[in-house]
C-alpha cells in the first residue's frame, strides 16, 4: 500500500440487527492531512470512527489504520491512535491532572515520559490554573482541551476527534483549530467530525456521509464548485423569517438558507442578478439592507446535499 496513506478504508459496513448504520464505506486519508467527516445526526460518523479505532467490530469490510489492519491487529491500532469521543470521556470525579496521569498510564508511558508529556499537555491546553479542578466541574472549553490533550499524550500519528468543538465558545474553537493545525504541521493525521461547517473549511479533504453511505468526497473548494453550480446571493435583513416565507413560495428560488440575519438564496435561472432580487423584494415591500453575490459556503453545500437526498427518496 502507498506510503502516503494513513487511513485506508474498504467496504466498511456495520449492521445493528436489521439496521445498517454504515454501508460499504470506502475512502482514504493521506498522511498529515486534516480529513473532515461530515453528515447529519445519525448518519453514521461515530459508528465509522468506532470501527476505525478498534472498539467496534465491522460486520464486513476492513480498514488499515497507521499500517495496521483494524480486524487482525486491533491492539496495535489502539496504541498508534489518539481518540477523543463525542462525550469527551473524561473521568468527571478525577481532577484535570489525574485524568492526564490516568490516560498516560493507559498508554504505557514510563514515569519520566509521563511527566514530560503531562507538563506539555497542561501548557498546550492552557490548564495550569485548573490542574486540581475536577473534570466534572470544568466548563465546556476546558473540558474539551483536557480531553484533546489526553488523546495526544502518547504522541499518536493519527488522531480521531468526534465533534471536538461541540458546545465550545467561538474563541476556544479558534484556539483549538490553531492547535490542530500545529500538530498536522508535525505530520500528524487528523480525522475530525463537526457540525460547525465553517470549521470544515480548515480540512484538506472532506467526505459527506448520509444514511450510512458516502455520498460525496473532495476538497472544500471542489465540493463548492461541484455541488453548487449556480450563483449564491446573500441578503441581509432585520426580518429574515419574512424573507424566507416569501422566497419559499417563489418559483425562481431553488434553495434558501439562513444564518443569523443573513439569508442565502440560490436562484434556478442564470439571468437572475442583484437588481432582479432587489426589485422583487421592493415590490413585495420587504425590508432588506444589502444584497451580495457571494462564494457559496460549506453550509450551503451541506444543505443542498441533504435536500437532493431527500428529494430522491
Amino acid at each position: 500500500m502507498n506510503n502516503d496513506i494513513s487511513i485506508y478504508v474498504e467496504g466498511l459496513t456495520k449492521r445493528f440487527g436489521d439496521f445498517t448504520a454504515v454501508r460499504d464505506v470506502s475512502f482514504e486519508v493521506k498522511k498529515g492531512e486534516i480529513f473532515g467527516f461530515l453528515g447529519a445526526n445519525g448518519a453514521g460518523k461515530s459508528t465509522t470512527i468506532r470501527m476505525l479505532i478498534g472498539i467496534l467490530e465491522p460486520t464486513s469490510g476492513y480498514a488499515i489504520v497507521g499500517g495496521y489492519n483494524i480486524i487482525e491487529n486491533v491492539e496495535m491500532v489502539k496504541q498508534s491512535i489518539g481518540y477523543m469521543s463525542q462525550r469527551f470521556s473524561l473521568y468527571e470525579d478525577l481532577t484535570a491532572k489525574e485524568n492526564l496521569n490516568f490516560y498516560g498510564g493507559i498508554y504505557g508511558l514510563d514515569e519520566k515520559e509521563l511527566k514530560n508529556r503531562v507538563s506539555w499537555a497542561v501548557e498546550a491546553a492552557d490548564l495550569s490554573d485548573k490542574e486540581d479542578v475536577l473534570a466534572g466541574e470544568l466548563a465546556g472549553g476546558w473540558k474539551q482541551r483536557l480531553a484533546l490533550s489526553c488523546a495526544l499524550l502518547h504522541k499518536p500519528k493519527i488522531v480521531f476527534l468526534d465533534e471536538p468543538t461541540s458546545g465550545v465558545d467561538p474563541i476556544s474553537r479558534r484556539n483549538f483549530w490553531n492547535l490542530i493545525q500545529s500538530i498536522t504541521d508535525e505530520g500528524v493525521t487528523v480525522f475530525v467530525t463537526t457540525h460547525y461547517l465553517e470549521e470544515a473549511e480548515y480540512c484538506n479533504s472532506l467526505a459527506f456521509i448520509h444514511n450510512g453511505e458516502i455520498i460525496t468526497k473532495g476538497t472544500p473548494s471542489a465540493l463548492k464548485k461541484n455541488v453548487i453550480k449556480r450563483k449564491v446571493f446573500e441578503i441581509e435583513s432585520q426580518e429574515p423569517d419574512k424573507l424566507i416565507d416569501c422566497f419559499k413560495a417563489e418559483e425562481f428560488v431553488d434553495d434558501i438558507s439562513i444564518l443569523g440575519l443573513k439569508v442565502h438564496i440560490i436562484p434556478n435561472r442564470e439571468d437572475i442578478n442583484k437588481d432582479y432580487i432587489s426589485g422583487f423584494l421592493k415590490n413585495k415591500s420587504l425590508e432588506f439592507k444589502k444584497i451580495d453575490e457571494i462564494e457559496p459556503s460549506l453550509e450551503d453545500v451541506f444543505i443542498e446535499l441533504i435536500k437532493l437526498k431527500r428529494e430522491n427518496v
Partner: peptide, 20 residues
C-alpha cells in the same frame, strides 16, 4: 441551555423554526 449543541445544520434550522 445550549439546546442545539451537537445538532446538525439542517436540524438546527428546523429547531429554530419551532422556537420562532
Amino acid at each position: 441551555d445550549e439546546p442545539t449543541t451537537g445538532v446538525d445544520p439542517v436540524s438546527r434550522r428546523e429547531f429554530w423554526e419551532i422556537l420562532a
